[in-house]
Amino acid sequence: MINVQDVVKWYGPMLAVDHVSFQVKQGEVLGFLGPNGAGKSTTMRMLTGYLPLSGGKVEIGGFDIEEKPLEAKALFGYLPENAPAYTDMSVEGFLKFTASIRGLRGQAGRDAVEKALDTCHLQGVRRQSIDTLSKGYFHRTCFAQAILHDPPILILDEPTDGLDPNQKHEMRELIKTMGKTKAIIVSTHILEEVEAICTRAIIIDCGKLVFNGTPAELRSRSAEAGCVTVGLLNVSAAEATPALEKVDGVKTVTLLSEENGRALYRLAGDKGRTGLAASLKAFLDGKHWNFDELHTNQGRLDDVFHTITSTDSAKEVHK
């Protein structure tokens, strides 16, 4: 549904987006990650036809955004960064306006507005002027505008920004549900969110695409992924450490903490090797050592994010 090819954006002499390509299909929720200033919003502004491209091509549902802007724009709903809205209007008035711009007039328009008000829990403030809304409601009003016409494509720039925990949860559920039938791009800084709702994630750093894969793949890139954490009871570290080092498949042993007779270890094996936990279990049973914790680490997303984005910016400095 969304096809981005070699997109480039220059702000004067500054290269903000550097040959980024990706696709989003129907039924996919693409998480768009990257540090502040990486070029996420800039990319989204180009996808939606707000900013002209300095190079490359964007197709929305088969329509080139620069050559057939009207057809392309009719296919998506867009929540811009900071959720702008006409503050001098009421929530209802604003949504009615966007409905009529989308060609939903008369009864169809009224139905669409009602549905959006319900979905975004805005019934209670429907007649309130937008500039008196709290930040979360303001944000939801702009979100309501994006989903009002039930578009097949959604482009959402930080949709959970400024929402309370309940609303965040609800927003994620909503995106997940809609993601089954639509093609969605969501930018976010919350890594758990990517796991919770996205079927795929891309990371850009300094305008370049540095990762494109599933959240699970992202996790497995972590140095910790595949490591085993074990908490031993009634064993001194002096005795346990040398013993653990000899266990089949263990490469490094790290003592994380030792207190009240409990020693917490992290064991790393060779990259790509599985079954470390199983051989460790067999070893502990053989020794009759007690343990209160034994699990294989999934890898931490923030770890990977940190490694991927900071090495790349270091390279950038190097040039």
Binding site: G49, P69, L70, Y78, N82, A85, I101
Partner: peptide
């Protein structure tokens, strides 16, 4: 100033 320009020009109007 209100950034609504972004909203307006990403809607299907010329």
């Amino acid at each position: 100033r209100m950034r609504t320009l972004e909203l307006l020009f990403t809607m299907p109007i010329t």
